[in-house]
């Protein structure tokens, strides 16, 4: 039996709720507006798994260099909280993170610590290791954090990156958002080790697993892991079990694909949805329903304003096509 951990400060619980709600509500707006065909970029939705990046980014308190896959909406918002930039990029506007040239799969705002997102599976992983090396050499005190799916752990580059990070003693955080599937292929059909968490232990790193589905659990885990990683100068692997609610790419569901059972997913995951859990927790911390609703309304208004702003923002002119292939001096 484990003892209940010390409760987190109430402000932290509220922050985590806000961050979860920001990601969830932003994606709800994407679902709503996607059919208008103004956001013409392949959406890989985070919905259901937001608590992983929300918990980790909060734990790093702004000192993360985040590297993400194409499924990066939640990580981007958890790290930057910048819905203006986010929606501008999705709408393909000059005011976006890459003036629309990146889109949903290439969200990046290095000034805010979201360094890159990448659409080729696992490619972001070694880049995070290099960032970890730069942070070590330059003494920035920052931590490179890389998010990827369990499918990326099929790839050699994942194991190579672990090896290099351990070899060079870099405190890089490898965070696997383990939703159990690569598109519709289950992990068991792709990987031999019964447990990724165990397999990773062969590398000199700390390997953790979390199947709580709870943002506070991930937050605690990440705080401990990052502290230890820096202290011991070695990488950490966090395998966080989660569930993607929507289809692999696009904004609809995929129950009709038949590879997973809707009732089981509802029972095992949606019924204990991380955002709902956190909302219940706030209530149990004596936060009134009206206070919670006020928090939600404020975030909702901010997102709506960002969506409106983005949909009105200028589209890059044809002269921008050839611009920025190479670095443009300021």
């Amino acid at each position: 039996m484990t003892l209940d951990p010390e409760p987190l400060p109430k402000t932290t619980s509220i922050q985590l709720f806000k961050s979860l709600f920001l990601a969830r509500r932003s994606e709800e707006y994407i679902v709503k507006h996607y059919p208008e065909n103004l956001m013409r970029t392949p959406m890989h939705m985070s919905m259901g798994q937001e608590f992983v990046s929300v918990g980790v980014c909060a734990a790093l308190e702004g000192k993360a260099d985040v590297f993400a896959s194409y499924r990066s909406h939640a990580a981007f918002l958890a790290q930057t909280h910048d819905t203006d930039l986010f929606f501008s990029e999705l709408y393909g506007r000059s005011s976006g993170t890459g003036e629309g040239k990146g889109g949903s799969m290439h969200l990046a705002s290095p000034g805010q610590g979201h360094i890159l997102s990448s659409g080729v599976v696992a490619t972001q992983i070694p880049v995070a290791v290099g960032a970890g090396f730069a942070n070590m050499r330059l003494g920035t005190g920052r931590t490179a954090v890389v998010f990827f799916g369990d499918g990326a752990a099929d790839a050699g580059v994942f194991w190579e990156s672990l090896n290099v990070a351990a070899l060079y003693r870099l405190p890089v955080m490898f965070v696997c958002e383990d939703n159990g599937y690569a598109v519709d292929t289950p992990r068991e059909a792709r990987q031999v080790p019964a447990s990724l968490t165990e397999a990773v232990k062969a590398f000199v790193c700390d390997s953790y697993e979390d199947d709580s589905g709870d943002v506070e659990s991930v937050y605690r885990l990440a705080r401990g892991a990052v502290e230890k990683a820096h202290r011991e100068r070695r990488p950490a692997f966090l395998n966080v079990k989660c569930c993607r609610y929507l289809e692999h790419v696009g904004t609809g569901d995929d129950w009709h694909w038949g590879y997973r059972d809707k009732a089981a997913v509802e029972r095992e995951w949606i019924s204990r949805d991380a955002l709902l859990q956190q909302r219940v927790r706030l209530a149990s911390l004596q936060m009134s329903e009206s206070a919670i609703v006020a928090v939600e309304d404020e975030i909702d208004r901010a997102i709506r304003a960002s969506v409106a702003k983005a949909s009105q923002a200028p589209i890059p002119g044809p002269e921008r096509l050839y611009a920025g292939v190479f670095h443009e001096k300021a």
Partner: peptide, 27 residues
């Protein structure tokens, strides 16, 4: 730290170079 050997994993070590380059070094 400024001139070193690597494991035999060119793909990873190129990503490593990109990461170092975009976070302040010149590999």
């Amino acid at each position: 730290e400024r001139c070193f050997d690597t494991p035999i994993c060119e793909d990873t070590m190129t990503g490593f170079g990109l990461g170092a380059a975009i976070r302040g070094l010149r590999p």
